[in-house]
């Protein structure tokens, strides 16, 4: 039972990441490969405030969201000048830079050794220590992020970012400053990713840089693409599918020596098959 709860918590965390990245990639058409950076900023800021300063988890998460959004604002000022392939490449560059800060700024992040003994959240004296309570809290945050994302995509802003995805030059003819829209959605996405980071840090109680590498960004991108671009429900579906897939593959019974590699290969094959037969993802309507 505990194991199912563990998977459900991972689903909530990756669901939040999927929703966050879908706002940027699916709705606005900006192929960002920097998601893990903001996930990481959220995790590190939360962990440091909990471990070193003894902060309350929820206050630490709030600061983590602001810190991640601030980093995204600086990065976004540069990124938002780009579009298409250049955006993807530049975001990859920023993702690598932030990863190497996690790895090398040892005085703060403790480098490759990571930060151990991160406490579980304390909610007015009630410690959310057991897995079931943590799941409930994670699902509440997932729901909150879903509702906020839905509010955004159904607003006039949501329509404008989709128009930017379709034709950035054409929308500017009608008085839109596309750069402001691209910047704001990037900042919002980064803030949301930090929520996932905070949840992860306090759940696993240990973080190190390896969790926030470019591989993780690509994994979240796979969630978004598999679930469906510009489909919020799709991102939840994609997260559930990719979190559960390794478990399903256990039943296939690959020999232990090659099981891990086979799982990676199955991910790859799945993505290729999807691009060939259903490029809009399982539930989406749009193509990249």
């Amino acid at each position: 039972m505990d194991y199912f709860i563990h998977l459900a918590i991972l689903f909530a965390i990756y669901g939040i990441l999927g929703l966050s990245l879908n706002l940027v990639v699916g709705y606005t058409g900006l192929l960002s490969v920097a998601e893990a950076a903001f996930y990481g900023v959220g995790a590190y800021v939360t962990a440091l405030l909990l471990v070193n300063a003894g902060w309350n988890f929820f206050a630490a998460m709030g600061v983590a969201v602001i810190a991640s959004a601030a980093v995204a604002l600086v990065i976004g000022l540069v990124l938002s000048r780009f579009g298409g392939d250049y955006y993807a490449l530049a975001s990859l560059g920023f993702g690598v830079i932030i990863y190497s800060i996690f790895l090398n700024w040892q005085a703060v992040t403790n480098g490759p050794l990571g930060i151990p003994a991160i406490p579980r959240p304390d909610f007015f004296g009630y410690v959310i220590g057991d897995e079931a309570s943590y799941l409930v809290m994670s699902l509440v945050f997932l729901l909150l992020v879903y509702v906020v994302s839905r509010f955004i995509v159904r607003s006039s802003f949501g329509r404008a970012i989709r128009a930017i995805r379709e034709d950035e030059a054409a929308i500017q003819v009608f008085g839109y400053r596309a750069i402001n829209y691209k910047l704001l959605i990037f900042v919002i996405g980064a803030g949301i990713a930090a929520i996932a980071g905070a949840l992860y840090a306090s759940y696993i109680t240990y973080i190190d840089p390896s969790t926030f590498s470019v591989n993780e960004s690509i994994f979240v991108l796979a969630i978004v693409i598999l679930g469906g671009l510009a489909s919020l429900r799709g991102s939840l579906f994609g997260a559930a599918f990719l979190v559960l897939l390794p478990e399903l593959l256990r039943f296939v019974g690959f020999p232990d020596t090659i099981a891990a590699q086979m799982r990676q290969a199955v991910y790859g094959v799945l993505l290729v098959v999807l691009m060939l037969y259903r490029p809009e993802g399982l539930t989406g309507e749009y193509r990249l």
Binding site: S156, F157, A160, G175, Y176
Partner: peptide, 24 residues
């Protein structure tokens, strides 16, 4: 046009609020 948006939305996007904070 904004090809993957419907006909109505192609006009609405021109009619609605342009300021980024107002639009949200």
């Amino acid at each position: 046009l904004f090809n993957q948006m419907n006909v109505m939305e192609n006009l609405l996007v021109v009619l609605t609020e342009k300021n980024v904070f107002g639009a949200i």
